[in-house]
Simulated assay, not measured.
Amino acid sequence: MAAVDEISPDVYRVNVMTDPDLDFTTSFFLIRDEAPTLVETGFRRAFDETYRAVSELIDPATLRYLVVPHFEGDESGALNGFLSRAPHSVAVCSPIGMAVNADLADRDPMVVDGDSELDLGAHRLRFLITPYVHTWESMLPYDPTTGTVFCSDVFIGPDGGHAITEADQTDHMIQMYKSVGIFPSRAHLDHALDKIEAVHPRTLACHHGSVKAGRIGTYLQALREHDVTGVTEWNPMLEPTDRPR
């Protein structure tokens, strides 16, 4: 059953366990406002579960924006499910996302770039364009009204049953990235970290793991100081006991 937690005023984390053996979870986020917005949608296969969770907070038919940081099963798999239930909703993606993945949405997406801003009511959304972090079309939305960066696959960590943490999970984060190799380029990662640091986030709303409500500088420094880019031999089909931890 999806867990729902408020992580900042009217911003909710909807979380589903992905891999209990690794304490690995997947989250997306609902901003409850005049223009209700989802950041990420979760997996298509989990749509019924996550739709019920969203229904606890709003009428999903009133959703206006479905923000896609990048097109991937866990980030956008349920996109068309939500589009079909919310007749006035629109997917939101980066310019590269529109160029290469627009066909994945049943309605034409809205394109945003680094100068765009969505007025949701009490909240606003702006966008950090961060190619190859970790896919070509990646972008990271942020809400300057709450200081929240929706950081997608940056700052991955364990969940441990905690929606929000102020603990230092950098060791786990670095080990995970070295194991799976989702960042192809040091230059692209540094470019993204520069953009994140420049908006002075107070909260890192992670797609995988607990939301980070403290030690923001520590996480940024850890990714700058450790080489977590390049090719690995990660095999997602390994048995749990053989997986890197």
Rank of each mutant, 00 (worst) to 15 (best):
A2Q: 13
A3P: 02
V4T: 15
D5F: 11
E6S: 05
I7F: 04
S8F: 03
P9Q: 11
V11L: 09
R13H: 12
N15K: 08
M17Q: 13
D21H: 15
T26S: 11
I31H: 00
R32V: 00
R32W: 00
G42K: 06
F43T: 07
A46K: 08
T50Q: 11
L57M: 05
L57N: 05
I58W: 10
A61F: 04
T62V: 08
R64Y: 05
E72V: 11
G73W: 09
E75P: 00
L79I: 12
N80D: 15
L83V: 10
L83Y: 11
R85A: 14
H88V: 07
V90G: 06
V90I: 13
A91G: 14
V92L: 07
C93F: 09
P95F: 13
P95K: 11
A99D: 10
A99E: 15
N101D: 15
D103I: 03
D106K: 01
D108H: 08
P109K: 03
P109D: 03
V112L: 03
D115G: 13
D119V: 09
G121E: 07
A122I: 07
H123A: 03
L125F: 10
L125K: 05
T130K: 06
L140Y: 15
D143P: 01
T146K: 00
T146H: 00
G147I: 00
T148Y: 01
D153S: 11
D153T: 06
F155L: 02
I164R: 02
E166N: 09
Q169F: 09
T170G: 02
I174N: 04
M176N: 14
G181A: 06
H191V: 01
A192V: 03
L193F: 08
H200F: 12
H200S: 11
P201Y: 08
C206D: 05
H207M: 08
H208I: 06
G209R: 06
K212E: 02
A213D: 01
A213F: 03
I216L: 06
I216H: 07
T218V: 12
T218H: 10
G230A: 09
V231W: 13
T232H: 06
W234K: 01
P240C: 12
